[in-house]
Design a binder for these strands. Structure first.
Lengths: 120, 120
DNA sequence: AGGCTATATAGCTATATGGCTATATATGGG
DNA sequence: CCCATATATAGCCATATAGCTATATAGCCT
């Protein structure tokens, strides 16, 4: 509901490294080292990405000795999905395009000044 | 499929102004002026947002005299949705947590050095 | 205690983003 | 042809982001 939450969620998802980290976490918890391993990137950079993900509520972290295992928190993804759902009808093409409908009506009732035609 | 596409899509969605513009476009085409009207923001700023949306393939633009009506293009949203779908099982809670399962197994077969326990 | 491992923080740089104002471009209409 | 309207571009500023290296912190282990 909070728009800031969506901002953070989408911003966090707008980076391939972070999406890859989330994908990795589908298989379960992982430490920072494990998450960093596939990337040609310094450990601090990964920590920074994790901070962004944590800030967006997309991961949470436990404590296992000196390790800070990361776990996926999918709730913000559910909210993002909920936002996207409003557009499903459109991308599925089941959507009765309002302007197409208007074009149709204009073909029956020719356009006037107060109802200018739309270009297609 | 192209990760850059997802980058652009999510980045475009990470701004409340742009999400509001997309929401407005559900109801059909709108001109830049119409889109700008609800916001306490200059017209050039709106144009910039529209450029971002266009760059992400989220809108396309026609020509109606000196107007450049914007129309929603939902395909990138479908791709974003597709990406999110991989996580649906998790946020719906139907997911058999792999690490929870491992904890369970460890309770049966006590932990050894090679298989350290996970903290919860 | 001291060292090793895992992670975080600090501080730097380069680039990107989002806003503004001022100005340029495009197009229909009188 | 000129004007008004709609939109885009340029140029500026402030802040954010993504990367780096170097260093600090935390916690096990001997």
């Amino acid at each position: 509901m909070d728009p800031r939450r969506l901002d953070q969620t989408f911003a966090a998802l707008a980076d391939p490294t972070r999406r890859a980290i989330l994908a990795r976490l589908i298989d379960g918890e992982a430490t920072v080292m494990e998450l960093a391993e596939p990337f040609a990137m310094s450990q601090p950079s990964i920590s920074k990405h994790l901070k962004v993900l944590e800030g967006a509520g997309l991961i949470s972290r436990g404590r296992d000795a000196q390790r800070r295992p990361c776990r996926l928190e999918a709730k913000p993804l559910a909210e993002a999905n909920e936002w996207l759902e409003r557009y499903r009808a459109i991308w599925e093409g089941n959507f009765l395009r309002l302007d197409a409908l208007l074009d149709e009506l204009q073909r029956v009732t020719p356009p006037s000044k107060s109802a200018p035609g739309k270009k297609r």
